[in-house]
Nucleic acid binder design. Structure first.
Lengths: 337, 337
DNA sequence: AGCGCAGTTGCAAACGTTCGCAAGCTGGTG
DNA sequence: CACCAGCTTGCGAACGTTTGCAACTGCGCT
């Protein structure tokens, strides 16, 4: 293994100079710097991370905690975060908590001491989580706790767009099929929907319970939606929409003829199923990148001593119109085979 | 920050004893061990990874390199690997290379020195990759290089099962829509298919080019499949199958009435699309776990001095029969609206 | 010519852990 | 009673880097 000592010997300087030449080039005289760089390159010198971390106290690596990597939503965020971390020359520890709050707390506890900061993606137990962090830099994704930096999708704007779209088609009674009770995104969507509908006096929102954010959740919700008398429905995510469509079809209803359906997330199933889903799209890749940027800035600010204002960038949510939404038809056709 | 010294003081022993009590409990007398463990727990002592790594030379962390985390296939493998690593108390660095061989080589070069070993998942440039590893423990997933440990899915067995299924339905001419030229899995599947068909003298295989492993690839392949005169088709993966079905439908053909389709991977789109796809299923979670186990064993063996035989566990590939396969119908009905 | 100052460089002390070595202790044996 | 073996524990030296401090250089100023 080649160490600073080897490089120093070859370059004819002391190890301190080698360290400085590589870490803070501006503090070393030009010719010396060149000699050191040359030697380092020739020897294919790679600084020992562990030693640097031990001495300097910071690792140049960050953590990312996600509930489920197999969920395309989080996979996309993770991918974005990873790409950004790489660009910044930092490492990224990705941990999958299997949607388990206990595992989440444990993961954070393990990550905190050996990273320079952690991104918590849709945390299930943010409060406990923040405790486990012991005051280390942290960025929340799609979750909010007072005074903690975060990045989020603009659910409010997304909901407004979805509702405007449905209203323009002629819908006046719109159902919302909710996700997990504890989901922050779900809360934001409900709130956004309520706000958006308040702007019109001719549109009514019906909230239809909480369901698992899976295909089965949508199947379970379908009958309630039918009974609600709504002519259009917005679902917590695309999978719920898929399940909903499935069950509606089983009951003899056609989408979008009898009911318009809007999904959320624009996961790639949205374009694969029949009919292709109208859905709300967030650039998850960018969300991941933004989270890392925000974290690095927070960590740097913390080191610099100046407290960084915990602002909260929100990423645009776009409406992608496909074939699951259409104008409503008069009630008499509903339920017809 | 609480260190071994603090624990030692509280437990009334020396730091060496603390270190031993926690790392190699069997080398410390019962009561002493208890005192140390108690103290460590009370103080919430967490060993400084960097220091341990620096001194001991091994990090207790491994690397996992995948081409694309957003691909459910790799996401599932990553998830399994992660879960297993956690169980073993090890860390796992997951790196996404965006399908880029250069990035892959770079990632490996960065990972190798700071981990105890690396899992390479479907590497695009395995040969270069192995060079960059500088002789460090490595396990290949779905790739083979002589003398290098690997885990793989039993593509051969899977292909045999798919072919037997189609033959039992009455198909005698089966097309295979291939994936990327450089894909090792694709090679294995072709070979497996050839072997399986050799066992019967009444079944014929038609290989239909190489296509992108995406929906578009399947759409592009559809017309060639129709022209091939096959009554059934096996595709490189489920997405290709989806694209294929899509294009067939556009040309007025019904699946499975006019053509039976078998996908590969059993990604969750397989059950969502219409018709639900008959497909080959690998337990990717287990594949990831197996890879980590194999890597840890290899690394331990290397440390122990005894060379581990580079065996190559193969995971079962099952056929999941859904609704995209059926008996063939006589030629005259083909192309009818 | 003497002095101070800025720009460079080297010395040496950490950082927190692991582990080889040896010392201490206990109990069994000659 | 002396001795040895074996178990347990402590001492202290690494591991490779960063960084505060001090020493040295050469230059411009008084």
């Amino acid at each position: 293994m080649v160490t600073v000592h080897d490089v120093a010997r070859v370059a004819g300087v002391s190890i301190s100079t080698v360290s400085r030449a590589l870490a803070t080039p501006e503090k070393v005289a030009g010719p010396t710097r060149d000699r050191v760089e040359r030697a380092a390159r020739d020897l294919d010198y790679r600084p020992n991370r562990a030693a640097a971390v031990l001495r300097a106290g910071r690792s140049g690596a960050y953590g990312l905690v996600v509930p489920d990597l197999a969920n395309p939503y989080f996979a996309a965020v993770a991918k974005g975060a990873q790409a950004r971390a790489r660009e910044l020359g930092a490492g990224l520890f990705i941990v999958d908590t299997d949607e388990d709050p206990d595992l989440e707390a444990e993961a954070i506890g393990a990550l905190a001491p050996q990273t320079d900061g952690v991104v918590l993606c849709s945390p299930r137990a943010a409060d406990r989580a923040l405790g486990a962090l012991a005051g280390r830099p942290v960025v929340l994704v799609n979750h909010a706790v007072d005074g903690v930096p975060a990045v989020e999708a603009d659910h409010r704007g997304g909901m407004r767009r979805a509702l405007e779209h449905l209203r323009a088609l002629g819908h006046r009674r719109v159902a919302y099929v909710g996700g997990p009770e504890r989901s922050w995104s779900d809360h934001r969507r409900r709130a956004g929907l309520a706000d958006a509908s308040a702007a019109y006096d001719d549109v009514e929102i019906v909230e239809v319970g909480s369901f698992r954010p899976q295909v089965e959740g949508g199947q379970a919700a379908a009958d309630l939606v039918i009974a609600s008398g709504a002519t259009a429905v917005i679902t917590f995510n695309d999978l719920v929409a898929v399940g909903l469509v499935d069950r509606l079809r089983a009951r003899g209803l056609d989408v979008p003829r009898n009911l318009s359906v809007v999904g959320c997330d624009d996961s790639y199933v949205a374009s694969l199923v029949t009919p292709p889903l109208t859905t709300l799209s967030v650039d998850l890749h960018r969300l991941g990148r933004a989270a890392v940027d925000h974290l690095v800035a927070t960590a740097a600010g913390r080191r610099g001593g100046e407290g960084v204002a915990p602002d909260r960038p929100a990423l645009d949510v776009e409406l992608v119109v496909r074939s699951s939404t259409a104008p409503p038809v008069p009630d008499l056709t509903r339920g017809a085979p």
